[in-house]
Design a protein around this nucleic acid. Structure first.
Length: 599
DNA sequence: GCCGTTTTCGGCCCGACTGTTTTCAGTCG
């Protein structure tokens, strides 16, 4: 019997990845040298599972588990048994004799397999339950420091990092990290306006959430620049200041790291610290086949032992025989092969965007959800400033309680008239804005019905539909719920599809194959919601949608005229999902988009 | 244990940091 997962429960990708990582850890403890690559194989399999766009269990159901790169015949056989019977004899065997507590202890930053095993043995902590609390006790009593290989410093370090386990892994939302980085970069440029500075890591790759804010600086005067950096006036404290890097802590526990490089090797530094880790691993494997070794200083020829520097990333990638790869898609999901073959997608760009397809104004149609804070006039003017050709007002549908059919229709009629009026008057005076669509964001009820009377639809150009309740339905019911809602010809856009809230709520589950197939055939649109707390569809599913040929729309879902600029974060998600201009309908001309949306 | 634009066998990314080891192992990104 395995020690931590319940055989009756469907195992999620996160749990499965954890299991595979635990097997790798078990091999580390038990294995001889020859197991080294088997350990890596299990860790890679765990990574692969974590990055899947559908549940591993579903892939297994469809017999497609072996298609996943990193999962081969052996692991497939074990998972086969696991999914069928709820356990794997092989995994049981590997884990046998190891204290379950060690896997719990491994959740502490700085504790890997070896340390966890040693601690649990030496301290006599065997059970997973309360393992962290037991460790804490031993730390306090000074027992840990007396174990061979440990000292007072490791005791203090562990005490500190054990506290970080429970704090949760709240990561910065992309716009906030962007803002922090922009302000620090502005400060850096006060020293020297010509200074070249770039964000690094997940921030440069525009991931939805960011851990630390890392910056790269190209300079010949590293000491002076780093000294200016740690003088940043809004810092809480300086963490460290060395010859090539420095770190400061800002309010809200936001750590900012700066790394400097001489201009001649700046391209290599930028590439190295932009990652992702998986992209770099794959890139180094490719380089090795060419007889090169890569690091943050440049490219080393393994025969001549000579190191070549690169001022720019473009030259760096060129030297490896490929096009420059946009940071957003550096995730080792096929971009290297595409770059080698000159087949990188021409990703959609913020400049291509001609309109915003989800906006909430303050026009009161008595909804039970939030109203927007600004008038239709204010929003239209802002849209014109942004150079948009069209926008859609998508207030929530009138609440069901307190409205009968007639009063709902009356409200929808009034909104139609207000939008018409704007189109006939205000819009005529504008530079770029040509059309305001009259739309509505309609709740999809648990059974897939829509709480708007049939004649109410006549007043709409088109409708967005989205889920705002009953998030816990099972996958099949959820899928049918959406299919049912989109039977109506006026329902065109599926808004914030997974309903996820970053750092707070997981998205709901659908059978995406079925949904995308339906959306493709019926020419309906899936939204990429640009609200930074949602960024939904998530990038991985955007990639799937692109593969299916499903078109997507961008909407800021804004309730404030000041947040209309969030569009740029939606574009980042689209880019991370390999979306090209034609995949996103907001890049279409007014004439084209009318054909798609108005039925 | 996995994988393939030199391979179905023979390889498998790179380096920094940390602590305690007097020469390196473990962890991390």
């Amino acid at each position: 019997m395995l020690y931590y997962y319940n055989v009756r429960k469907v195992i999620t990708n996160t749990e499965l990845a954890e299991l595979l990582r635990d097997i790798a850890a078990a091999y580390k403890i038990k294995g001889e040298k020859k197991n080294r690559f088997r350990i890596i194989a299990y860790e890679r399999a765990a990574d692969a599972v974590e990055h899947l766009s559908s549940e591993a269990k579903d892939l297994w159901d469809e017999g497609k588990l072996m298609d996943v790169s990193g999962i081969g015949p052996s692991i497939t056989a074990h998972l086969d048994e696991l999914f069928k019977t709820g356990k794997s004899k092989h995994f049981d065997e590997v884990l046998k004799g190891l204290p379950p507590a060690m896997f719990e202890l491994m959740k502490v930053p700085g504790i890997g397999a070896k340390t966890a095993y040693k601690l649990s043995k030496e301290l006599g902590i065997a059970k997973a339950k309360n393992a962290l609390r037991e460790l804490k006790k031993s730390l306090r009593s000074g027992r840990v420091a007396r174990i061979e290989g440990f000292g007072e410093i490791s005791e203090q370090r562990l005490e500190k990092s054990i506290g970080e386990v429970k704090k949760g892994e709240k990561r910065l939302l992309l716009p906030y990290a962007t803002l922090v980085a922009d302000e620090v970069m502005k400060w850096l440029k006060k020293l020297n306006t010509g200074l070249e500075v770039h964000p690094l890591g997940s921030l440069r790759r525009k991931a939805s959430t960011v851990g630390d804010v890392d910056l790269a600086i190209s300079t010949k005067k590293p000491v002076e620049v780093l000294h200016h950096f740690v003088d940043y006036p809004r810092k809480l404290r300086k963490i460290e200041e060395g010859p090539s890097s420095a770190s400061i802590m800002l309010p809200g526990n936001v750590q900012v790291d700066a790394m400097v490089s001489p201009p001649r090797s700046y391209g290599a530094l930028l590439q190295h610290f932009t990652g992702s880790k998986h992209h770099n691993i794959a890139l180094r494997e490719h380089a090795l086949k060419m007889g090169f070794s890569l690091n943050e200083k440049g490219i080393k020829n393994l025969k001549t032992k000579k190191m070549k520097n690169f001022e720019t990333e473009v030259e760096f990638y060129e030297a490896l025989g490929m096009e420059w790869i946009p940071p957003e898609i550096r995730e080792d999901t096929g971009e290297i092969q595409a770059a080698l073959n000159n087949k990188l997608p021409d990703l959609v760009d913020i400049k291509d965007i001609k309109g915003d397809l989800q906006i909430h104004s303050s026009f009161d149609i008595e909804t039970s959800h939030d109203l927007g804070q600004n008038s239709m006039d204010e929003i239209a003017k802002r849209a014109d400033e942004l150079g948009y050709e069209y926008i859609a007002f998508t207030e929530h549908n009138p609440s069901q309680s307190g409205h009968n059919e007639r009063s709902m229709i009356e409200l929808l009629k009034r909104k139609r008239e207000a939008v018409d009026k704007l189109n006939y008057s205000l819009v005529k005076t504008m530079k770029s804005l040509k059309k305001i669509f009259n739309s509505l964001e309609i709740d999809i009820m648990p059974n897939g019905e829509l709480p708007v009377p049939e004649t109410g639809f006549d007043y709409l150009d088109f409708a967005l539909c989205s889920i705002h309740s009953s998030f816990r339905q099972n996958k099949k019911d959820m899928t049918n719920r959406v299919l049912n809602a989109f039977k109506h010809p006026k329902t065109r856009i599926f808004a914030h599809p997974t309903t996820r809230i970053l750092n707070k709520r997981e998205g709901v589950e659908f059978d995406w194959g079925v949904l995308f197939d339906f959306f493709k055939k019926s020419k309906k649109i899936v939204e990429i919601n640009a609200d930074p707390i949602r960024l939904d569809l998530p990038d991985i599913l955007v990639r799937e949608a692109v593969k299916f040929g499903v078109k997507m729309s961008l909407g800021t879902d804004t309730h404030y005229v000041t947040s209309m600029g969030n569009m740029v974060f939606g574009v980042s998600v689209a880019r991370r999902g390999w979306a090209k201009k034609r995949d996103i309908i907001n890049t279409y001309s007014l004439e084209e988009i009318e054909k798609i949306l108005i039925q």
